[in-house]
């Protein structure tokens, strides 16, 4: 099986009431291995809730979520840690342990899987270099800038080489320079083969990148826009489709998103 064709994460007919004015309704989406997808919508649209269901911190009332081999309807509480080790998650507020160094924060993700200390140290050099924080490995998060803290969070998220990275407004607390930096880092990680699903309210920020964008409004997917451009190495669609879709600028309801 070529990894490009595999669906790494999918949501089928997901619905859930979340209070009076807030519900997710019949959400369907599929993310292929190595794909980069933006999930865009105003705050309150249900982006965070949808992501939470993908790392199974919450469950749909109906429908199901599939991430790798984990299926929400068959999920047992005990196996949740196994799922979390296979995916990376980052947030607007970084969620770092402030009383531990950068190194310890990142190492935690590997320690919980039982990775030996020697192995952790060996991989750490590479990970820290990738996020550009090798020189700050013994600093504590409060001493770092927002952008740096988010890079620590990203390093922790990718420490176990996840197949998919979920990012919930990762640039929400950052200035434009740091935002650009974080986005570049996410693209770099994606280029390494990790699928990325990034939720943001900022359409302007992401529309220029030419990645697939899923629009979520009031708990519904209103558009799943797939912009295909020449040279996309992870283009899963044959060239005839590409040109046809490029012509239409392919705004379409999600029916075949992520499928061959």
């Amino acid at each position: 099986m070529t990894p490009d064709k595999r669906i790494i994460a999918a949501v089928y007919h997901l619905s859930k009431d979340l209070g009076k004015h807030f519900k997710l309704q019949d959400i369907n989406l599929q993310i292929a291995n190595g794909e980069f997808v933006f999930l865009v919508g105003p705050s309150g649209a249900g982006k965070s809730t949808l992501l939470r269901m993908m790392y199974m911190d919450d469950y749909p009332a109906s429908g199901q979520v599939v991430v790798g081999k984990f299926v929400s309807t068959r999920m047992r509480r005990k196996t949740i840690p196994n799922l979390r080790r296979k995916i990376g998650i980052i947030f607007q507020d970084f969620r770092l342990l402030e009383d531990r160094t950068v190194f310890e924060n990142i190492a935690l993700a590997m320690k919980v899987t039982g990775t030996g200390m020697g192995e952790i140290k060996r991989q750490m050099t590479e990970i820290l270099t990738r996020v550009g924080l090798y020189h700050k490995r013994y600093d504590y998060p409060p001493a770092l800038s927002g952008g740096e803290q988010q890079r620590v969070a990203i390093a922790r998220a990718i420490a176990n080489r996840p197949a998919v990275l979920l990012a919930d407004e990762p640039t929400g607390n950052l200035d434009p320079a740091a935002t650009k930096n974080i986005l570049e880092l996410l693209f770099k990680i994606n280029a390494g083969g990790t699928a990325v699903l990034m939720a943001t309210h900022d359409i302007d920020l992401v529309k220029s990148f030419g990645q697939r964008i899923i629009y979520l409004e009031e708990g519904r997917i209103v558009r799943d826009k797939e912009m295909i451009y020449v040279g996309d190495i992870r283009d899963r669609i044959d060239q005839s489709k590409v040109s046809r879709r490029a012509e239409m600028l392919s705004d379409h309801e999600i029916t075949d998103g992520g499928k061959e």
Partner: peptide
């Protein structure tokens, strides 16, 4: 609570 949530997020088992 925050620290515990973070540990859960990175896949720490309950025992851990």
């Amino acid at each position: 609570r925050r620290a515990i949530d973070i540990m859960k997020l990175v896949g720490a088992t309950n025992a851990y």
